[in-house]
Amino acid sequence: MSTLHEIGSAVRIRRTEMGLTQDLLARISGLSRSTVNAVEKQSISNLSIAKAVALLESIGLSMNVTVNSSALSSFRKNVPSSRSALERAAATASVSFGDPMSAEQLEVALLAGETPQRIRPHLQVMLDEAPVSLLAKVVDQIHTEKAMPKAQVWGQMRNLAHELKCYRLLWK
């Protein structure tokens, strides 16, 4: 499978899960709608790395270069496991507040689509300012742990963003 094919498939799947149109994704990424369309259809013959990165990052995806090395493998074995995506997102959203939002509160809000008044400011900050890659990891975690379709989790985020009057173009 070619890299352009992989990028096109990944972009189409993520865009659809997020409930974005090609036009809105184009505006978010700074590319033209015809470029987004060509990438998704894998009919683009030449895509610069800068454009690919802009497109992928706008929906929380990335490109990676990997090295097959035993040194790299032994390095990764010594890296401690990090906090879950829900824990990182809750912590990120709570930085400016004295009373933090917990990962459990965030999870309940995303599952139920409702937010207690106390964590509404936290959610607004998260939805407006957290990296899209972190939001995508939250969606992946809820999908994996709760068997909730990814599109439904993105939809819950979008509904909450509308309710909280978030300004990020992603939620339009």
Rank of each mutant, 00 (worst) to 15 (best):
G155D: 15
I119F: 02
L169T: 10
N68K: 05
A136G: 15
G98C: 01
A54D: 11
S70T: 08
V125G: 01
T144D: 15
A38G: 02
G19P: 07
R27D: 11
V79Y: 00
A90E: 02
I28T: 03
L135S: 09
V67H: 07
W154G: 06
K165T: 08
A103V: 00
M1L: 10
Y167C: 02
L123M: 15
L72A: 10
V139G: 06
L55D: 00
Q105E: 15
E40Y: 05
A91M: 04
N78R: 13
A50H: 07
R158A: 15
V95M: 08
L55A: 01
T144F: 11
A89Y: 02
E17S: 11
S2Y: 09
K41P: 00
R118C: 02
L72W: 03
E145V: 13
L47R: 05
N46E: 08
K146C: 10
H122G: 09
Q117L: 12
P131A: 13
Q156N: 11
I13R: 14
A10G: 04
A26C: 07
L170F: 15
L24Q: 12
S73H: 04
P100K: 04
T144G: 07
I119K: 11
E114R: 15
A136Q: 11
V36K: 00
V11R: 06
L134V: 06
S94E: 07
W171D: 09
K137W: 03
E129D: 12
I142A: 11
V153S: 01
H162S: 13
E107P: 01
R76H: 08
M157F: 06
A26T: 00
G98K: 10
K51D: 09
L111H: 11
L111Q: 14
L24W: 02
D140M: 12
L20P: 05
S48E: 01
A103K: 06
Q117C: 03
P100M: 03
A38P: 00
E87L: 01
K41F: 01
T66I: 10
